[in-house]
Design a protein around this nucleic acid. Structure first.
Length: 260
DNA sequence: ATGCCTTCAACGTGAAGA
């Protein structure tokens, strides 16, 4: 089972880039973030025509997440529990029925949190606290669990080309990193670092100031795997080449392959 | 650097991103 997470930065703006990528990369499951579309406006036929089941959790203008799957999906949940007043569409999960295993797959778009300090940073940390509680619930299911998406977290200095530029940023602040570590300490494995220890590996390059041409990137798109899922992990890689294509997103796909 | 670029909503220009 191959799962890719991809922050597409707007589904309408990315239709050509996204369908070209799907046709050639053929993920079994694609977790999309920042669809920036309501459910009714999501071009689901484009994906259904390619054999994908489509589940969305959208909102008007920004945010929004989706799951595309060539494998059967069951028990879809929309929204991160823990705050009924939260109207931001940043979480979707479903059970993917693989050939040999059923995997609980969560697609997430963690809040950016800038500027620091301020209400957006408070929201980010509160959202991570809610995610922590929900992650404990997921672990209790004893199913293989994958939580993947745009975490908006630079885990370590080696995950940024210019770590000093991010030191006071919500993506790298100590409180953000500590909340991410607390998730890992529940027993999750960060798939990319389980497979690859090389520095200079990024998943996002800003549109501004020639960041891509200078390889001035950060690694903020991650897959966190429960022990049951980590036992199935065969590989994890970043599809960097996608960033150099026509009209690209500012993020690229990050993949895992599971023996499921 | 309150900058740089891109998207969305809406049709001019501000919010949001990271």
């Amino acid at each position: 089972m191959r799962i890719a997470t991809f922050n597409i930065n707007g589904v309408k703006a990315r239709i050509n880039a996204l369908t070209d990528w799907l046709d050639e990369a053929k993920p079994d499951v694609a977790l999309l973030q920042e669809i920036k579309s309501v459910d009714e406006g999501f071009p689901r036929e484009l994906f259904e025509d390619r054999g994908y089941t489509v589940e969305t959790h959208g909102q008007k203008g920004f945010n929004g997440v989706a799951i595309l799957s060539r494998l059967p999906l069951e028990d879809v949940r929309r929204g991160l529990p823990g705050d009924d007043s939260d109207e931001q569409a940043r979480w979707i999960e479903a059970t993917v029925i693989g050939d040999s295993e059923a995997v609980r797959v969560c697609g997430l778009y963690l809040p950016n949190g800038n500027p620091v300090p301020g209400p957006k940073y408070d929201y980010k940390l509160a959202w991570m606290a809610r995610m922590h509680i929900h992650a404990e619930m997921l672990l209790a299911s004893e199913m293989p669990v994958v939580m993947a998406g745009d975490y908006n977290i630079i885990p370590q200095d080696e995950d940024a080309a210019r770590p000093e530029a991010w030191r006071e940023d919500a993506l790298a602040r100590p409180e953000s990193r500590a909340a991410f570590r607390r998730l890992l300490n529940l027993g999750f494995t960060e798939a990319f670092r389980a497979c690859n220890q090389a520095p200079g590996m990024y998943s996002f390059w800003d549109y501004q100031a020639g960041a891509w041409n200078r390889n001035d990137g950060i690694r903020i798109d991650h897959h966190l795997l429960s022990a049951e899922a980590a036992d199935l992990l065969q590989d994890c890689w970043i599809e960097k080449e996608v960033r150099g294509r026509e009209k690209p997103s500012d993020h690229v796909p990050v993949w895992i392959e599971l023996a499921a």
